[in-house]
């Protein structure tokens, strides 16, 4: 499902962000990517989203060669990826329903289907009652659940989560992780970049540890490896 072969990314400053990493993630896997700041985790997510292109190497996602992807084909490629960020990235002037519906509107889903899909996905993340609320009226955990609902409403085969619990308290962090696990059980491949040691150690999923742009560990049912 996700294949990286000798992927290298060097920024214009000359600093290497990723140094010849190779990686295979199968369909339906749940993978944690852990590592310190500057280890290359976010660069990896940006490469998968095709926000960046690698300096060298191959990236195959959903049978698509991401490196060779033409600009006009990027939107269709991104529709196969759900994405959640640490800072939620919700539209502050729109309510919960509009934020989730927005993801369907931009890909021209018929309004009739949007009216059916949005309540359904809001129920899944436990926010059916708050569909009229604006983001500022919600807690951090609730905002992240809205972001999650938006990420999965188009039913992507892959979900990328970049520090999804970074701004949340432990209780909300666990709720988000449970939702991600639930989504993964539905068949979606889930890739989570995180610093949350407790969650990584408790969930016993595949853990890829990165350090200074290289993969230093890849454990099937792993835990958080201390840097020192």
């Amino acid at each position: 499902m996700i294949i990286l072969e000798d992927v290298k990314k060097t920024y214009s400053t000359g600093a290497p962000a990723l140094n010849n990493i190779s990686l295979h993630i199968e369909k339906g896997e749940f993978v944690f990517i852990v590592g310190d700041s500057g280890s290359g985790k976010s660069t990896l997510i940006k490469l998968l989203l095709r926000e960046l292109t690698p300096t060298s190497g191959r990236i195959i996602v959903n049978h698509t060669d991401v490196v060779k992807l033409r600009h006009r084909k990027i939107p269709r490629y991104r529709r196969g990826l759900g994405v959640v960020f640490q800072d939620f990235r919700l539209l502050k002037d729109r309510n919960v329903y509009e934020n989730v519906a927005f993801a369907q509107r931009v890909i021209a889903v018929p309004p009739r289907l949007i009216r059916k899909n949005v309540p359904s996905v809001l129920s899944l993340v436990g926010l059916a009652e708050k569909y009229k609320s604006k983001p500022r009226e919600l807690s951090g955990g609730e905002q992240q659940r809205v972001a999650l609902a938006r990420a999965i409403i188009n039913d992507p085969p892959i979900l990328l989560a970049d520090e999804p619990t970074g701004n949340l308290d432990p209780k909300n962090s666990w709720e988000i992780m449970k939702l991600l696990d639930q989504i993964n059980h539905g068949g979606t491949t889930v890739l989570v970049v995180t610093h949350n040691r407790e969650i990584v150690n408790a969930m016993r999923k595949r853990v890829i540890t990165m350090k200074k742009g290289v993969i230093v560990s890849d454990q099937k049912k792993g835990g958080y490896i201390d840097e020192d």
Binding site: R72, P75, R78, L91, F102, V106
Partner: peptide, 17 residues
């Protein structure tokens, strides 16, 4: 810009944006 960025990440085409 934030809204546009979200649109792009969701898979909106250049035309839609």
């Amino acid at each position: 810009r934030e809204e546009i960025g979200i649109m792009k990440l969701i898979g909106a085409t250049d035309f839609v944006v």
